[in-house]
Amino acid sequence: MAPVTEVSLHLKDAPDLKHASFCLKHCENLRGKGRVPGQRQCVKVRGSGCQAVSCSDTTQQWADFSLALEANRSLKCLDLTASELLDESARMLCTTLRHPKCFLEKLLENCRLTEACCKELSSALIVNQRLTHLCLANSNLGDGGVKLLCEGLSHPDCQLQNLVLSHSNITRRGCRRLSKLLQEDSSLTNLDLGLNPIATGSWYLCEALQKTNCNLRCLGHSEGLEKSARIADGLQQSGLQGDTASAGIQ
């Protein structure tokens, strides 16, 4: 196949996802970046120039797509924003992340994942040491999902640096888990917890921020003025950056 440097696929039906899989499998020299205007259910593969938009989510199609991801060694960023992945499809993606030929560095999954996928994702965070950026915004992970993710994040082989958990139904219990993680010399340097009902969970975050072994450099949050002041005090004492308007980590 002749060298291809950039391709944009606008998929309108289920069979088109197969075309995207073929593209990923055989276009090994993709470069550049681009976006496809948002659709409600879509998959965007970007960062290496190849984009795919799908209006379906069947097991076999995602199985083919996952295999194609393994074959493409130039792809660095996978954007699944606005998709609604089934749990089984998400598990397939995690299997791909654990594959030694997966070269993804950024995974953006604003696609309403649930706690059911977090155990496999946690395992992938340990195995895939290339992955440094993970966005799970607008999901229904809850505190249970955070607990499972922390198992992987606390592993010494995990190299994740940027984690976005905004609008993921996380409460003070989840914050307590994250606080413990941040005090264990975690690789995380950027954390976004905006638009979560953390309530008094801000106390746990402040506790972690004041520890000398906390590597966090940027905290995104969205709280009331009083709670924001508490977090700001913790940020000031630890020399970190924060945003009371919930800074998204791009």
Score class of each variant (00 low, 15 high):
Ala90Ser: 15
Thr114Gly: 13
Gly152Ala: 02
Asn29Trp: 04
Gly174Val: 14
His167Glu: 05
Glu151Ile: 04
Glu84Gly: 10
Glu120Cys: 13
Ser139Lys: 04
Leu148Phe: 15
Lys227Phe: 00
Val36Gly: 00
Leu108Met: 08
Gly32His: 07
Leu188Cys: 05
Asp192Ser: 08
Gly224Pro: 00
Leu80Gly: 01
Leu17Met: 13
Cys27Glu: 03
Cys135Phe: 02
Lys180Asp: 12
His10Met: 02
Pro100Met: 03
Lys44Cys: 01
Ser246Ala: 15
Trp62Pro: 00
Leu121Gly: 07
Thr200Pro: 02
Glu105Asn: 09
Gln41Ala: 02
Asp243Cys: 13
Glu207Ser: 12
Glu88Val: 15
Arg73Ala: 11
Leu108Asn: 05
Lys147Gln: 04
Ser202Ala: 07
Leu136Asn: 02
Asp157Met: 01
Ser74Asn: 04
Glu207Cys: 07
Thr58Val: 11
Arg176Ser: 11
Leu86Tyr: 04
Cys111Lys: 05
Leu80Thr: 02
Arg73Asn: 11
Leu93Met: 06
Asn138Met: 08
Val4Asp: 13
Leu85Val: 06
Val127Gln: 09
Ala116Arg: 09
Arg176Phe: 00
Ala68His: 03
Glu120Phe: 10
Gln241Ala: 06
Cys206Arg: 10
Asn29Pro: 05
Ala208Met: 02
Met92Leu: 12
Thr171Cys: 12
Ala68Trp: 03
Cys111Asn: 15
Gln41Gly: 05
Ser187Gly: 01
Thr96Lys: 09
Val53Asp: 02
Leu141Gln: 06
Ile198Thr: 03
Lys211Cys: 14
Asp233Trp: 08
Met92Ile: 03
Thr200His: 09
Asp64Ala: 14
Asp243Thr: 10
Asn140Cys: 13
Leu9Glu: 05
Leu181Arg: 09
